[in-house]
Design a protein around this nucleic acid. Sequence first.
DNA 1: TGAAATGTTGGGGCG
DNA 2: ACGCCCCAACATTTC
Length: 491
Amino acid sequence: MCEIDDEGFHINSNTQETAVIWFRNDLRLADNPALNAAIATGLAVLPVFIQVPEEGSQWPLGGATKWWLHHSLKKLNESLVKCGSKLIVRSGNASEILLALVEEANVRRIFWNRLYEPESIARDSDLKSKLQVSGVQVESFNGSLLFEPWEVRTGEGKPFQVFTPFWRACLAANPPSPPISAPKNVRSPERWPVSLSIDDLMLEPTIDWAAGIREMWTPGEQGAMQRLHNFTIDHMPKYACQRDNPANEGTSRLSPHMHFGEISPRQIWHELIPLPSSGPYLRQVIWREFAHYMLYHHPRTPQEPFRAEFRNFPWRADAAKLQAWTRALTGYPLVDAGMRELWHTGWMHNRVRMVVASFLVKHLLQPWQEGAAWFWDTLVDADLANNTFGWQWVAGCGADAAPYFRIFNPMLQSKKFDPNGDYIRRWVPELRGLSNDSIHEPWLATVFELADAGIKLGVSYPYPIIDHVAARNAALEAFQTLRDNNSQLNG
DNA sequence: TGAAATGTTGGGGCG
DNA sequence: ACGCCCCAACATTTC
């Protein structure tokens, strides 16, 4: 067969047929079913990454996420080079780029692992039909969940709304398939299509604010496996009793690696399931599944409360309060410590995430969407499903959420989970000199202790921006208003 | 994956 | 010895 292009030149009739593996949030070679399938075709493989334009997306990548992506792409490219291949990088509308690449590189088949965000699903299904019209065979795979969201159903065939039965259904389902090993070779094409460099994507910040992030994280598949093995050996056996203490490294810290698909939940599952006492951690992995499941079945939840009555919640949007929270100057040491850990490392211990989120939503009465937006921009593990689910859970408007009237007491949480104040001292160094008692509530320290510790409240560290008891009562009152209004609407 | 208020119980001090 | 009060300690209820 001989083709003629627009200019009338003959394209080499022997132009080699190729297969594309389109990398998205699956930046790994091991247990990558789409990559595996692309290789199995026997065709030359074009590994492609496309940076999509941010305009138009409701969730453009946050700053911390961009930093991570930059380094993860570099690592992925290095791994591909070791297999005799490389990453083709492009930027622009994904559909247009792939359709153009099909012409340019004689692409016969395209493979990708599924994404589950509503915007991605819409784009991918549209693209799939366009590609099929152009005669390209498209196959998608499950690369990032243990169970497909449409497969886990209640006895009545409906989606679950409560975690525990969902968890039981997962345990009863066919176990996730064992992970596929990484390919040794990826067949390269005779001629490589043009590619941007990863640096061209300008993902790294122009002002270098990432020093703390660099220090803590090693993006990429290898870094992810290292974290997993380190966690499995050193921390997993004591996970149940250590995971709530934010000063310890008692948790896996795999969240950003999982978000970018540098490691798959199947790899984690199969590594841990044979080990004793892995249940509590795997339960957390299933919380992640549940978050993705909920987003799939309720695609409006990133914007709107799952429980519709919360649309009428009397939030008191206040830029100054929100700013005190984002700047970690609330005057509540545990809250400020968490917000500073986030700013410095791009990550926050989950126990503290609950505390700071509860504080923003229930003490400060700020809309949960504001908190979600800040996390989205600052977390290296920012993930639409997990972030949405977590915030709705805390705000009490989500599925199987903490009831609104469950209000964390920041001092009690602090004393319970950071009893020696180690976490606070690490992140709020101006309070270091306080005793283990006062460090949780410096405003109760005596003038002598404050002076000895070199603290002048209101100057070197703020007074609490809000009184706990008053805030708690106001939150309960706001919740009562919501209930009254709704019962009026219904009655 | 709460906290605070309220209720109950039982030991010990004390008149 | 006895009843009374106090108050931890624990349990239950409410938000």
